[in-house]
Design a protein around this nucleic acid. Structure first.
Lengths: 339, 339
DNA sequence: TAACAAAATGCAATCGTTTGCAATTTAATT
DNA sequence: AATTAAATTGCAAACGATTGCATTTTGTTA
């Protein structure tokens, strides 16, 4: 008996084919033990044969659950550049894996769209069951607003920030401290900080940078902090300008991302500045490229896989009305040849 | 008058608040000229005030349209590694932008989930209106199956492949040819091809590699083709082994991705092989890191932004029942210091 | 002011699943 | 064989928005 190819297959039709009611068919498909085992397998087989799959829109409407999580790349407002930062994309990739493992799908957005009311756009509208925000950005207004709407939400950012939502992130203070201390131990005493302390994460790293100096009894020149965008281009230009105007007055660089470090390295190499001979460098993130660089980049590693799992975990806790908390993911300095 | 905070706001309630019927409210929200302008603005204002947003599940069910596109990262089966290839992720990021610009959202999946019946899982089930597949993979079975189900679909891959669906991609033959010709002109005569011609895209690049040799009157040693995975690790090991076993018997490398090139470069540097002095190298993709490398990597640039736009365009054509065709995106060799 | 066209709004069916409850069938017990 | 409990299945009401068609309101013209 040929299948009516034109009209699409609905649960009702499948049920009819199987000679049962839609309720039975529905239950059978989700292996509900209420239905006799034999019936279940029969219907499941039939469904597979006709490659039937439940209409998600209808199902979501009825159950009030989507099994989708919205992931928002919360980029710095003007710098859409950072879309291509391998670290952020790695985070997204790991989130995708972790979500799938938990039976969820991922709706990916960047902060440029979706108006600015994330809670109502994504969750109230039943597009997703919750929100994962990657990056705190310079202002947490949108995040706060979404959280205020009592919607499941987690954020990748500085985990020590006080906030009404869980924040997952590395220990930025410790990372910044370790990186700086390391450079000082290796003999650097005029260390630039390449990054904008205006971001919560960077602020902590910068504090670590300051405290490491303090501990070593070195006073820092405030001009040594360069509040640049988190891009290799910005770093390249910054180092270029610095040298052009004041010569090579520094001997160490703390960079807030590996991409920033790469940009700086490029500028230095073009001027034949020796690394680590003349200037020692530490990056942040430990992206795959870091060890392929020449010289291989010393950097602060963050366990992204674990971070992604934690974020998903904390988010699903909220979906299931359980309590949550911010989490610090493991972070450590990877010493390579650039320092 | 306080809003009942607990019960969620539906169109019906909004309509009641406004003192109109749901039909009027619905039409007003989408600026239907059937409704008096004054009424429209009034209701829109009310909706904004209560930050109401239409229930997507219900709307999709009723209209049979989701305004979502599924993007599938079709990774090579065993090599999940390539998830982190910056090029692929760049493609995803650009697709995201292009889709948003067209009013669509992006559901991101990798090929490990979603069973293997993409058409029914994503489209028949009303999870998405169409599918974009990033990467042809080694076998196009799943893609073919989905296409056979008459579902809107486009693929990033080798655009000259004969297929019942549009394929968008760079001119791989031309890219491989240009890269190889360039190396030959620079004096390399024993050039390895690092990449697996088992993939449609690589196959074309490899043909270009062969033909460039032929044109120059050089016969190729079949052993010079190394069918490795598209990862820096594989390349690193490959070059390492090659040198360990046969010494430095080559003087040029055509790599199927920049990441592969980076892996190779690392192996070479560790053995103090000069680049481009002893070995000249060309990569593929022109990821951001390529020019930050030392030496800056000569590579084949592909216009990803345009590619993403074309893919979205061709996909939406299918959604709207218009005719489609494969498209070749602009590709050119960027000469830098590694060659 | 009646008659009629045009503009604005409302009614009610529909999209396809899920699920509480009722109804039926089957098995167990006396 | 009758009674009761347990195991299966089916009925029908949601879920919330959209839209063809009918209805009401408004404006125009004779």
């Amino acid at each position: 008996m040929p299948l009516k190819a034109d009209s699409k297959l609905t649960l009702a039709k499948l049920a009819e084919l199987a000679g049962v009611s839609t309720s039975t068919a529905s239950r059978a498909l989700k292996d509900n033990p209420l239905i006799k085992e034999e019936t279940r397998t029969r219907i499941q087989a039939l469904a597979r044969e006709h490659n039937f799959s439940v209409n998600a829109a209808a199902s979501r409407l009825r159950t009030q659950k989507t099994n989708v999580i919205a992931v928002i790349l919360n980029l710095i407002d003007h710098t859409e550049q950072s879309v291509s930062d391998p670290f952020l994309l790695k985070v997204v990739a790991e989130l995708n894996k972790a979500l799938n493992a938990a039976g969820y799908e991922m709706l990916l957005s960047n902060s440029f769209m979706a108006s600015d009311d994330w809670a109502s756009y994504f969750v109230s509208s039943q597009r997703a069951d919750g929100i994962i925000v990657v990056g705190q950005g310079k202002s947490t207004a949108k995040i706060d607003k979404a959280a205020a709407a009592q919607v499941p939400i987690v954020v990748w950012g500085e985990p020590h920030t006080q906030a009404p939502y869980p924040i997952i992130g590395g220990d930025n203070y410790a990372g910044g401290f370790a990186a700086t201390k390391h450079l000082i131990e290796r003999g650097s005493h005029r260390i630039l900080f390449l990054g904008d302390p205006g971001h919560a994460e960077m602020e902590q790293r910068h504090k670590g940078y300051e405290d490491a100096h303090r501990e070593a009894g070195i006073t820092i020149n405030p001009d040594f902090t360069k509040p640049i965008d988190i891009t290799s281009t910005a770093a390249y230009e910054c180092i270029n300008d610095a040298i052009k105007q004041q010569g090579l007055y520094f001997d160490g660089l703390i960079c807030v991302s590996d991409m920033v470090a790469f940009g700086a390295i490029k500028a230095l190499k073009e001027r034949y500045v020796g690394i680590p001979g003349d200037v020692k460098i530490v990056g942040y993130d430990d992206i795959m490229l870091a060890e392929l660089m020449h010289p291989a980049l010393t950097t602060v590693h963050q366990n992204v896989t674990m971070a992604a799992q934690l974020m998903v975990e904390q988010l699903l806790c909220q979906v299931n009305q359980q309590s949550v908390s911010s989490q610090v993911v493991e972070t450590h300095l990877v010493k390579r040849l650039s320092s």
